[in-house]
Design a protein around this nucleic acid. Structure first.
Length: 334
DNA sequence: ACGGCATGTCCAA
DNA sequence: TGGACCTGCCGTG
């Protein structure tokens, strides 16, 4: 489910709640028993997110690599030090997000554990249960049981004294040594939140401008640029008014650089808000709508058959490497 | 209850 | 290029 922004947000939660602590690791589902036994009782040393992958470092040079794929998710439960920007995007809070308050606001559950919210400046510990995948959405309370009951197929459970993280449905969950981690990361294109953005722009531009492959495919290629998925792909191409079929080497250099800079901006916004808000410069009214409903959040994604928001032309959808690609044939002629 | 679909990736033919 | 894999949700009956 997640594109790059979600993975960075999840990494943040591990940074706040796991780094420096020893974990109890288990595989309730049974498909990662051996790996879990290796990291059981080890201390988490650090966490890294690159593109759509997350790496948790345990003492003794053991790394856990997790790729959520399309369906994977982490569920956090217990006493969680909630990142302010994460809490504010928590679906549990309903549609309380307001323009300009996402960064500093920190609505959390009150001490009674009810759904009423408080908004204060500093991070605080809260008794919560949140799912972190594409959206950060609140889950129904299963009561105050500790440890939380295992629900569904949990590949890996990581528990500290106070926090529980359940991993389900990942496409990859494996242990790596430091060299393997380096090799994995080495194959990935630049990530604006990992690499120097100026260097990233050069790398991205150089690679794209050399390829005969359609730009619509290159944006999804994790070796070219990290973290972009199907939603951001479609939206970025529209924002650039760029035809998805143009070979990379034929896309004007300033457009290629513009795509990179747009990704830098969108990724930052996505990590801050937890939402793929790809329409900016909206009226307050439209902004509220966009934050409230996923259907009002995008220029072209998921809008096949609907009129283009700019020119009214019918948005088309086609298959591109097995994924749906949405675009406006009038606006994106370039 | 059931089927289709999804913000992803890999592999075999 | 098509299928396999991982799981949950949402629409349709």
């Amino acid at each position: 489910m997640p594109e790059g922004h979600s993975v960075h947000r999840i990494a943040r939660q591990f940074d706040r709640n796991y780094v420096g602590r020893a974990v109890r690791a288990s595989s309730p589902q049974g498909r990662f028993v051996e790996g879990a036994s290796v990291i059981d009782e080890r201390t988490v040393m650090s966490v890294r997110a690159v593109g759509k992958q997350m790496f948790l470092e345990f003492e003794g040079d053991v790394w856990l690599r997790v790729h959520l794929g399309m369906y994977g998710a982490w569920d956090f439960a217990g006493e969680i030090l909630v990142d302010p920007t994460i809490a504010s995007a928590n679906g549990r809070m309903g549609q309380t997000n307001q323009r300009g308050t996402d960064l500093e606001g920190e609505p959390i559950l009150d001490d009674a554990g009810e759904n009423s919210l408080t908004s204060i400046g500093a991070p605080r510990r809260a008794r919560v249960h949140v799912r972190m995948s594409e959206q950060t959405t609140g889950l129904a309370d299963e009561g105050d049981q500790w440890p939380p009951p295992v629900v569904g197929q949990v590949r890996l459970r990581l528990m500290t004294e106070v926090t529980c993280a359940d991993l389900r449905g990942p496409t990859a969950c494996e242990l790596q040594d430091p060299e393997q981690v380096q090799a994995t990361i080495g194959k990935l294109g630049p990530d604006p939140l990992v690499d120097d953005v100026a260097e990233g722009e050069e790398r991205f531009t150089r690679v794209v401008r050399r390829k005969p492959t359609a730009i619509g495919l290159l944006l999804m290629d994790q070796a070219v640029v990290s973290g972009i998925g199907n939603v951001y792909r479609a939206e970025m191409l529209f924002r650039a008014r760029q035809n998805p079929h143009t070979p990379g080497r034929d896309v004007p250099e300033d457009v290629v650089r513009g795509l990179w800079r747009d990704w830098v901006k969108l990724l930052r916004t996505g990590v801050e808000t937890g939402q793929m808000m790809t329409m900016d410069d909206l009226s307050d009214e439209d902004y509220r709508k966009a934050m409230a409903s996923r259907d009002d959040r995008h220029w072209v994604y998921h809008r096949a058959g609907l009129p283009c928001r700019v020119c009214g032309t019918t948005i088309v959808v086609e298959e591109a490497a097995g994924r749906k690609l949405y675009w406006c044939p009038n606006c994106q002629k370039g």
